[in-house]
């Protein structure tokens, strides 16, 4: 037990001051439900604020496509919105924000299972960016709620709030 507390402390302390690689782990501590983070919280006497190590944003090209996709989705043309977002995805396949947008359109089109998968894919890609991760968890939460899995939806939503409070 002592050792775990020590590990947790060692992980959290550097994170508070630096934005280097090592700081990815506290985010893990906050997002996972293993024993160590609980201990970390106890030791630090406050919830560990996730320290961003990167911040995703959309490029000009991708954001123009996202805007176009929103217009198409608003008009109810989900296949065209999807096609537009896939163009953005080809330009930025590793950007979690594009996957979240694609998941949102899937959800609107009634394809909650795909939205859920895309949300999880975005969570993995967004490692180190709590805002992007929170957006991904909110998508997952909405997708779960549509499928009637309210309990899990609430958990996902709480996870999002821990990462990036509203």
């Amino acid at each position: 037990m002592m050792r775990q507390v020590l590990i947790a402390l060692l992980l959290v302390v550097p994170a508070a001051c630096s934005l280097t690689r090592g700081a990815r782990n506290p985010a893990a501590a906050a997002a996972s439900s293993e024993a160590a983070p609980a201990d970390a919280e106890a030791a630090a006497n406050a919830p560990a604020p996730p320290a961003p190590t990167r911040q995703y944003h959309l490029s000009g090209a991708a954001s123009a496509l996202v805007t176009q996709a929103h217009a198409r989705a608003a008009a109810g043309d989900y296949p065209a919105a999807t096609a537009t977002l896939e163009r953005a995805l080809r330009i930025e396949p590793e950007n979690p924000l594009t996957w979240i947008e694609l998941g949102r359109v899937q959800l609107a089109a009634g394809n909650a299972a795909q939205a859920d998968n895309m949300g999880h894919k975005a969570v993995a890609l967004a490692s180190g960016d709590p805002n992007a991760q929170a957006a991904a968890w909110r998508l997952i939460s909405d997708a779960l709620r549509v499928r009637g899995r309210n309990q899990e939806a609430a958990t996902a939503s709480a996870r999002a709030d821990t990462l990036a409070p509203h």
Binding site: A80, A83, E86, H120, K121
Partner: peptide
């Protein structure tokens, strides 16, 4: 194939991207 449209330009079929989780990331 991404999409098929008719001679008059009407969309007939799209092959949208699909994800299936098959292993832990």
């Amino acid at each position: 194939v991404r999409a098929v449209i008719s001679a008059s330009g009407e969309p007939l079929k799209a092959f949208p991207l699909e994800l299936t989780p098959i292993a832990q990331p």
